[in-house]
Each structure stands twice: as structure tokens, then as C-alpha cells.
Design a protein around this nucleic acid. Structure first.
Lengths: 186, 186
DNA sequence: CAACTTTTTAAATACTGTTTTATATCATTT
DNA sequence: AAATGATATAAAACAGTATTTAAAAAGTTG
């Protein structure tokens, strides 16, 4: 039984930012949290990695943090709470209710049929397409609405990135499937 | 309360030269003064740094020196005297009264209102203007009298450099404000 | 002889690096 | 022959570096 492209979507990564407090002593955090990475000459933030859910956090002196790697909004939220707890355990005053903003969602999808990227490259709006197979095997398609970037591969697999909410990827896939059908490429 | 542009001037850096004696043994100076930098294959002068006032000095074998970093004529003078003392302490005969010549003064100013650099670029004398925002965000304006170069930024902040005396920057700002008002850009 | 070396300083831009993740090609490297 | 490591995409956080301007000194290089 074949799955429709718009039903094949899978969130692969969510990037979100949040402000957990107004100031954080990074050297202190880096030394007290096992596994924390901190190399200020390389990067100004402390890198913390949680295992369940598997999420990486970039923690900054400003009290702002960035979470990456979450595969669902729920796990993202859970990861932020875990991070808050880790910092709270260090004696830092961190609110129990933490707010965050999703900055990017990376989603994968599958057209379930191979596609000819060369034909798509000429059939689609040239100034929204970039296809240089000798540089990268995927065709880069920049959508305006929703504002996302889609990578199309000859296998029919797609990567939708740049979205702010799950629905963006869905809309992008529906639009692309529609466009490909209209020019008879799938 | 708004400050007039011509009252917002602040000297950010003064570069001056002086001759403190006829000959200086640079290897000796470099080895005896803590923190001195001397790499003759990189640069022919010894670099000395004073902390209060924070001024850097380039000392040459000819007995000539260059002072940079002073934020006022007074601190520049004080820095030169400190430098003279440092060399004198090494047993070198340095006059107590040292003369110097200001070679460049860098001054900052603020129009206190944002300005449209694109309009200024077309409204001002083209051959005295350089504006390539993709290369540098500031508009470069070369004044003839006083002979200085002014960098204008969209924020309304200005940098006046190339002047030989404090008054040069003041005159330049007054002239620019006048010019901008005459073409109705501020 | 011209141009670059070094030092200082402000302004405001772009851009680098770090983290994550799927996808799929190529070039290296064990 | 597997296994890394780019290559390309988006996004935030932010420290740092580059960009530009002027000027002197006294070396080196073209």
C-alpha cells in the first residue's frame, strides 16, 4: 500500500530558542555539568547534550539558549524543561514554565517515485531553482509561501527546511506534488 | 535634551610623532622594558604599551617615536613624557621637554538622527563620495577644507579622521550639517 | 618608487564558527 | 570495501574578525 507524499512527512529536527534567565555563569556551568563543552575562543556558548530526548543545547551568558535535534514539539518542550532543571540544580533561579520559539523545522518526505531533476530544473521557475549535481546531488527549490527551502533528490525523497511550524512542510509538499503533476513529471 | 551635532564630538584617537634623541639601541630597549615587542623582520620599530593613559608607542632606532591611542592632547603629552621617562631610566639622555607633532586625530560625532546614505550619495559631489554598502556600511566623504575624511553612517553617527587639530573635526561637522540641511536631508 | 609591514580608533555591516538533521554524491582514509 | 568528511539547506544564539578612513615611523619587496 502506497503512502501519499503528504502523509510521508517526518520531522527530523527542530531548532528553537528560549530565554531561561538574565545571566548565566558559563565557566561555572561548564565545570559543574558533566559532558558540557565550553571553548569560548571557538564558540561563545556552552554545549550541553541530553540523551532522552536526544537534544543538544547551546547555552549563552545572556541566559538565552538554543535547542537543536528535537524530533517533535513535545520532545522539544521536554528537553527545555530538562535543561531548566539542570540549571536549577546548580542553584540558578530558572522559571518552571519556560517559553520557547521554534526557529526552524527540518522535515523529510517521500514522493515514492524517482524524479528527473534535470527536467524539473528547466520546468520550474529558474530563479527559485539551484541544481548543480557536481556540487550537491539535490535540487534546491526556494518556496515563497510557505517560506521554506526544499531539497529534491532523484530518488523522490525530499527535505523541507526553514519552516516555523509543522504545517509549513505539509503545504510545501502539497504544492510541489501539484506542480510536478501539472508539468507531468510524476 | 538633544545635543547639537557639533557638541557631540569626541576624540577617539590621536596619532603623533616626536624625536626624543638621535639614536636608540632597540635590542637593548626591547630586552630591558617589560612587555616591549620587537621583531625587526616584521616591523623596524619596538612597540611599547603604556596603561595610563592607554597609549601605544612605536620606537625607532633613529630616536623618533610614534604615539597612538591617546584620547586627548593632554594624555598624549603625558604619554610622551612617560615614554621619555622609561627611556631615561635606561640611562639614555632624553630631554625633559619633549616636542611632538599631531599627525592625525580620529573623532566621532552624532547627528542624533538617522540619515539616508543613498540620498546623500546622489546629493553630494559624486567625486568626493564613495558609498559601497556591500563593501562597507559607511559613506566616505572627502572634505577639502578642512582636509579630512568623514565616514557617515545610516544611524547618523560620524567618524572624522585625517585632521591635524581638534578644530578640523568641528569645522567638518558644521559644514556637513549645513550641507545636509541645505538639501533637506536632516 | 610604490606598496606593504605595525599601531590606534570609532562607526556598522557581513561573515565565520557551533549545534542538529534528513537527503545523496564525491573524494579521501582506514 | 566500509567509513569518514565535505557539499548544500534553514535557523537561533554571540564572540570574533573582516571591511573602511587617516597618519607617522623605517624596514622589505616588487
Amino acid at each position: 500500500m502506497k503512502v501519499r507524499p503528504e502523509d510521508s512527512l517526518k520531522i527530523e529536527n527542530i531548532v528553537a530558542s528560549a530565554k531561561v534567565t538574565d545571566y548565566l555563569d558559563l565557566p561555572d556551568i561548564a565545570s559543574k555539568i558533566p559532558g558540557a563543552e565550553y571553548n569560548k575562543k571557538r564558540f561563545p556558548g556552552v554545549v550541553l547534550r541530553m540523551q532522552d530526548p536526544k537534544i543538544a543545547a547551546l547555552v549563552f551568558g545572556s541566559g538565552k539558549v538554543v535547542l537543536t535535534g528535537a524530533k517533535s514539539v513535545d520532545s522539544l518542550s521536554k528537553g527545555l524543561n530538562i535543561l531548566g532543571g539542570l540549571l536549577r540544580d546548580l542553584g540558578i533561579d530558572i522559571p518552571t514554565k519556560l517559553d520557547y520559539k521554534i526557529q526552524n523545522i527540518v522535515t523529510s518526505a517521500d514522493l515514492a517515485t524517482p524524479i528527473n531533476l534535470n527536467k524539473i530544473a528547466v520546468g520550474f521557475n529558474l530563479d527559485r531553482i539551484e541544481y548543480e549535481p557536481e556540487q550537491f546531488p539535490g535540487l534546491v527549490y526556494r518556496l515563497e509561501v510557505p517560506k521554506v527551502v526544499v531539497l529534491l533528490f532523484g530518488s523522490g525523497k525530499l527535505i523541507i527546511t526553514g519552516g516555523k511550524e509543522p504545517g509549513d512542510a505539509t503545504k510545501a509538499v502539497i504544492k510541489i506534488v501539484s506542480d510536478l503533476k501539472s508539468i507531468g513529471l510524476i
